[in-house]
Each structure stands twice: as structure tokens, then as C-alpha cells.
Simulated assay, not measured.
Amino acid sequence: MTVNERGDLPSGFRGIEVFDEVNAIAEPGRQLQAIRSRAPEFQSWFRAQGTAVAVETCDLVATPFPREYALWRAALSPTPFVRIYNRMMVVRFDDFDGVRRTLLVEPTDSRLAENTPFFRALADRFGPRMRDLAVVWGPTVAEHLARLGIDPAEIDYITFDHLHVQDLRPHLGTTTPQPDLGTAEPLFPNAKLLVMRPEWEQMQRLHPLQRNFFQPETYRDLRTDNVVCLDGDVLLGPGVAIIATPGHTIGNQTLVLNTDSGIWTQSENGVHPESYQPERSRIPGLARWARSSGQEVVINANTPELAALHYNSMVKEKLIADRGGPGGGWMQHFASSELTPWRLAPLVSPSFTYGALRHGSLKEE
């Protein structure tokens, strides 16, 4: 799984140093203090860089997810599951070489994601009939691109906030033909994967606590000449950055966007703005939990890796994003898997959903 040398960046990208010292702090309490100091500086600096060219989101799949993971210990509900909606984001930006680029964020192959041990066990437990009732299938990645008039060969980069559930063989191609796919060729022949180095390297030696949400066997025959490992925060172009937010996984990252509606963060660290502002939530238990615990965020804790760092990363996102939403005052966090209303889980329905994020036009001028 050899990839680029440490420190190498694609031409047209720029490294970001604002959080370098913060990211190097091992003690979680001191790191959190440092985040509170540096995040406003990052926000001001990032806003001054300009805006992305265009952003559009695409619905992929809505699926049940354990409440105790999505809302950790905070929600009071007998309902064991919530429903989350996974969405892809198409981002156009100009890099610092002046080249117009297209980035796909979270282009998950939803059908192959079902082979993840956790979701496979869930399907076996409830059977195909319950699965059909609970899961809402949207168009595939390729179907969305066709609708938008984007040739897969136009895609320059793909990225995921982390590699949970991902089978990347269709995206990157493989060194040998895959019997279950029928090909070794990639859907995106000119695209490179942008991934934090710790996230990529962990796939070679997963801990037992991690394995339930990964598909490491699918990485065996992957091409790696189109993988770019990031060793820190990166500005891809005006209004588009990827920053390290470890905790949900060891190499978790967050997309930061500056748009005509302000600054947004995007990740699965929290499943809804109410996860970042539980004191405002109408979901039973969240506001009271925030008051009694003194905790200001509710982590999406489906893997028990680095909870304190996960908390810190959510505070980082919370301090970077602007405020908006219904009535104003809500953090502009677009969850890559957003908590959505579900008639089978009425007590854990969110106060609102963003549902979509659009900025500019994807049509080339």
C-alpha cells in the first residue's frame, strides 16, 4: 500500500499551519484549550481566502443506525434505532495553479457498503422485509453524475471524512479483475483519493475494536498510484479546505467550505447540528444531558477509539462554522450522514434537517 512520500502535496494545494501545534498536543484537556484559542483565527483566515465555485449535495441512502451510537448517552428514548441519510457532495473550486477542479465528497457505493460487518449482521438479524421497509435507496453515484451532466472522467479528486463502510475498488480500480465487480477499471479514471495518512495506514493493522465498520479485505488489490495521503490540514483552493479532526476514527477529517451562505463544516463527527448544540435541542434528553454533564457536544460514537479527541474535534468544527438554519443561530454543519425524521423513531426526530447544500452552479461557464 505504498503511496506518496510524507509531506508531498498535489500541485495547486497549500498546507495550513494554524492547527499544527494544536494537533501535536497529546493531552486532551490542553488540546481543547488550544483549539478554543486557535479556531477563531482559522475561521477569519479561511473566510478571507474566498469562496468555492460551486457545491451541490446528492442523496444516496437512508438507513437505520443505533440510537446509542448516533446520540451516544444523551437521548431518552426506548427506540433502539434512528435513521441517518448519507449524502454525496460535488464541489467545484479553482486550485492555486488556476485550474478548475471537481471534488466528490462521500461518493459511497451504498450497495457494497452493506458488506460491512455491522450492516451485514443487521441485515441478517432483521431480514430482507424489514430492510426494505427501513432503507431508502437513492440514485447511485454514477446516476447522480449523469443527472448533473458530469462525466466521471472529469472528477479530479474524491475524499471521505473517514473510511468506515467504504469499498474503494470501484472508485480507484484494482490491480487484478474482481469477480464480484467484473472489472479492474475505476469509475473515476483520472481521480485521486485524498485521505489522511493515519486513516490509510490503519487499514493494514486494524484493532479488533475497529473492525466492525471497516472492509479491510477490499483493500488487498487496490491500485495505490492514485492515492494521496495528507499529513495535515490542506487548503485545496479558495473556500475549500480539509482539516484533521481525529477521534471518530484515528484519521478522521472535516471538509470546510466557504459559500454564499457562510462557512460550513462537513463530517460524520456529529449527526446533526443538535449534536453540537444539545442545549437547544428538542430531542428528549439532550438539553438536560448537556446541563447535567457539562458537555457541549454529543459525539457519534459507533467506534470507541478516541472519544476525548472526537469531542475536541467537534468543538473545533463548532468554532469554525457560521450560524444559520431555521430561525438563525444553528451551526452550519452538514452531516455526511444526517439524522432525519422517521416514523419508527418519533422521539428522536431532529428539530429540522438541512437536507441539501447548494452554492453557485456546477455548470461550467
Rank of each mutant, 00 (worst) to 15 (best):
R323N: 01
N226T: 14
Q295P: 00
S293Q: 04
I299K: 10
G247M: 01
L222V: 03
G325T: 08
N258E: 13
G251L: 12
Y219C: 09
P284W: 13
V228R: 12
L206T: 11
P246F: 10
E296H: 07
P208S: 04
K318L: 14
Y219R: 15
Y276I: 07
P273V: 03
G251I: 06
V240H: 04
T249D: 15
G325Q: 07
L255R: 08
L222K: 11
Q204L: 14
G239N: 10
N212T: 14
Q204V: 07
I250T: 10
V298W: 03
T259E: 04
V240P: 11
L209R: 11
G237M: 07
A321G: 05
A301S: 13
Q266K: 02
K318I: 00
I283V: 14
K316M: 15
Q277V: 01
I299H: 02
D233T: 13
Y276G: 14
T249I: 05
A321W: 09
G325P: 11
T245H: 08
V271P: 08
D231P: 11
N258A: 14
E268P: 02
G262P: 05
V271A: 12
A321D: 06
G285P: 04
N212S: 15
S293D: 09
H248D: 03
S275L: 01
M314A: 07
W289G: 08
P246S: 10
L206R: 07
K318M: 11
L286D: 03
Q202S: 12
G262C: 04
H272V: 01
L319E: 15
V256Q: 06
G262Q: 03
T259P: 03
N258F: 03
N252M: 14
V297R: 09
P238N: 00
P273Q: 08
I250D: 05
P278N: 04
G324S: 01
A290K: 06
E217R: 06
S261L: 12
A307S: 12
S281R: 06
E305T: 15
E274L: 08
L306K: 09
P208W: 10
P246I: 04
A301G: 06
T249W: 04
E296F: 00
H248G: 05
Y276R: 05
D225P: 02
V227C: 12
P284D: 08
H207T: 13
G294H: 01
H310W: 02
M314S: 09
N302P: 00
K316I: 04
I243A: 06
E201R: 15
L306F: 14
R288M: 11
A244P: 01
W200K: 10
Q253P: 06
L319I: 01
C229N: 10
I263W: 01
I299D: 08
L209G: 11
P208G: 11
W264L: 02
N258W: 08
F214Q: 02
G294P: 07
Q295C: 03
D322M: 03
V297M: 00
N312E: 08
A290E: 05
Q266S: 15
N258S: 14
Q204C: 08
H310I: 05
P238G: 03
E274Y: 01
W264P: 05
S293W: 01
S313R: 09
Q253G: 15
L235D: 01
L255T: 12
